[in-house]
C-alpha cells in the first residue's frame, strides 16, 4: 500500500482524498513541504491555479516539490494542477513547476458558461471516461517525450511524461477511480523499483 499526499492549500482536496482511500491507499493532506518526505506520490488538486501558485511560493513548496519529482516520485495534477506542472503557460511569463513538456492555455475551453462534461476515450482504459471540464485548461502542444493519453476536440487533455501525469478535467468530481488507479500503479512501480535497487 502506498501513501499519497494531496497538496492541501486550496481546492478539491477532500474529493481527491476520497478517491485515494477508495482505491485502497493511504491519503495525507500536505500543508507543509516537510510532509513530502512521508509520501510516495503527490496529487495537485483542482482549484484556482493562481491561488495555489501564490501559496506555494509563500510557503516554499517549489524547491521541495522539484526535489520530490527528481527522486522519481510520481505527481498527478488535475486542472489547476496541470497548469502548475506545465513547462509553458500561454500568455504568462511565470510558469511554475515546469515538470511536463506541454504548453497549456488556462480557461481554454471558456468561462463557466462553457464548462461541460463529455465521455472521452483515454488510452489504456477500456471504457470511456465521463470527464468534467470546469473552466478547464488544455495543452496546445507537447514535447516528444510526452505521451498523449487523451484528446478532446483535438486538444490534449490527458498526458504523461515519466513520473508526471496531468488531466485537464476533474476525475475527483466523479466516482470513477480509474485514473487514480492508473496513478497508483505509477506510484507502486516506483516503490518496487526502489526496493529492487
Amino acid at each position: 500500500m502506498a501513501t499519497i499526499g494531496v497538496l492541501g492549500l486550496q481546492g478539491a482536496i477532500s474529493e481527491h482524498v476520497s478517491q485515494i482511500e477508495a482505491t485502497g491507499q493511504t491519503a495525507v493532506i500536505v500543508k507543509h513541504a516537510d510532509q513530502l518526505a512521508e509520501i510516495d506520490g503527490l496529487v495537485l488538486p483542482g482549484g484556482e491555479s493562481t491561488t495555489m501558485q501564490k501559496l506555494m511560493d509563500r510557503y516554499d513548496f517549489i524547491e521541495p516539490i522539484l526535489q520530490f519529482a527528481k527522486q522519481g516520485k510520481p505527481i498527478f495534477g488535475t486542472c489547476a494542477g496541470m497548469v502548475l506542472l506545465a513547462k509553458k503557460v500561454s500568455g504568462s511569463d511565470n510558469p511554475h513547476l515546469q515538470l511536463i513538456d506541454i504548453e497549456v492555455c488556462r480557461n481554454a475551453f471558456g468561462r463557466q458558461r462553457e464548462s461541460f462534461e463529455a465521455a472521452i476515450t483515454i488510452n489504456g482504459l477500456v471504457k470511456e471516461f465521463n470527464a468534467i471540464f470546469i473552466r478547464a485548461p488544455y495543452a496546445e502542444n507537447a514535447g516528444v517525450e510526452v505521451e498523449i493519453l487523451a484528446t478532446y476536440e483535438g486538444k490534449i487533455v490527458v498526458a504523461k511524461q515519466g513520473n508526471i501525469l496531468v488531466s485537464a478535467f476533474h476525475p475527483e468530481l466523479t466516482d470513477d477511480t480509474r485514473l487514480m488507479q492508473y496513478f497508483n500503479a505509477m506510484v507502486e512501480q516506483t516503490i518496487k523499483t526502489k526496493v529492487e535497487v
Partner: peptide, 17 residues
C-alpha cells in the same frame, strides 16, 4: 453543459479559498 456536476463542481474548486 450546465449539468449539476459542472455547476456544483465549480464551487467545489473554490473550497478552502
Amino acid at each position: 453543459i450546465a449539468t449539476d456536476a459542472v455547476k456544483r463542481g465549480m464551487a467545489q474548486m473554490q473550497k478552502g479559498g
